[in-house]
Design a protein around this nucleic acid. Structure first.
Lengths: 194, 194
DNA sequence: TAATTCACCTACAGGCATTAGGTAAATTCC
DNA sequence: GGAATTTACCTAATGCCTGTAGGTGAATTA
């Protein structure tokens, strides 16, 4: 009896498994068992464990980009900022394994073909309303990426769950702070430090 | 002939190996070979791979806390902020394996006995100069942690190395931004959103 | 110098990734 | 509709890694 697998079904099953047991704990053995198939059979669809990890990472990046594109449509300013951050935060909480996979290192060529560039473009789009000129725009992109990724990572690790106030409150304040910061961004044409 | 090992020597060697090949790639096999010893001999000093990983994590957290304490002495305000962030950033670049180990999850009991609480205390100390009352102080602690960890993680992953301007410039701007943000932190006794 | 400790060893079992080579089900072609 | 081809899946075997059991000899202590 054939199970009717292909590369995408295997990848999705791997992503689901990652969400349940953690990305680093995904093994071909466990995945094969879940799919009702022998381990060697998986090699007909993916090149090995490393290839599977890369495919899950690409899946997660694409899903994240699609979600972000949907939430960002028709929003601007603080609204867009909160929406973009919220996509990352919600995705990480609903799909921790997929979110971890999205941090998996990709070689340069693969990264360029991934949804990574779409992410960068969307962050730039969110900043459009704040009217920053280069290089400040790039500095701001990096700051937003750092805050979103950092906050979500720490929250996922439980770093904010053992002390008051609730993490949700801090999240709202962080978004507010970023919004205020971007509005009053100090434009620096000559900074003696740089 | 005896190699004269003990738990600490094994842990330090493991940390050095992690800095060279990555924390996730540390194996007892490779570590034993590097120490000129058979794999089974390592079990006289550490309880297994998991225990070794925990010990490397605790070592990294302690080293980071010691470095931070040293750099923070006698500094305040933006100076202290830059020093604390710089410790994380420099440590991660010089010791990527140790930095990755510091993110290794610890069970609650172990985390409490680790240098983790010292880190929290030092971040609060840096904020002293900005005169924030609770719960704003905690929100700010979480923001700083997020930015530092997020920026360092992304930079380490090479996310900022394929576009101008130089990451160092963005780092200085991020520190400046945080300083400005903390100085003008909007004190909110009643925020209708929370 | 004798007893004890313990750092290190050999030998083995189990789990996982990976490859080689085979079989039968699905698909394609005439 | 039957033959040829493709391919999804299999069994079998190898090698690396973690982890355990039990032994040996060097260092330490009495």
């Amino acid at each position: 009896m054939r199970a009717g697998l292909n590369a995408e079904r295997v990848t999705v099953a791997g992503a689901d498994l990652a969400d349940e047991v953690g990305f680093g704990e995904v093994t071909l053995s466990a995945l094969a068992e879940r799919l009702g198939v022998k381990v060697a059979s998986l090699y007909s669809h993916v090149a090995g464990l490393g290839d599977l990890q890369t495919r899950i990472a690409l899946l997660a990046l694409a899903e994240l980009a699609d979600l972000a594109a949907g939430e960002l449509a028709g929003r601007a300013g603080r609204d867009a900022l909160a929406a973009l951050g919220g996509v990352f935060r919600d995705y990480a909480r609903e799909h921790p394994g997929r979110y971890a996979a999205a941090q998996h290192p990709l070689d340069h060529e693969t990264a360029l073909a991934s949804a990574g560039p779409r992410h960068a473009a969307m962050t730039r789009a969110v900043l459009r309303d704040y009217h920053l000129a280069e290089p400040d725009r790039t500095h701001a992109v990096r700051l937003l990426g750092s805050v979103f990724h950092g906050y979500v990572s720490l929250e996922l690790r439980g770093a904010f769950s053992h002390s008051a106030p609730d993490s949700q409150e801090s999240w709202v304040r962080v978004i507010d702070s970023l919004d205020a910061l971007l509005r009053s961004w100090p434009t620096t044409d000559d900074d003696p430090r740089t």
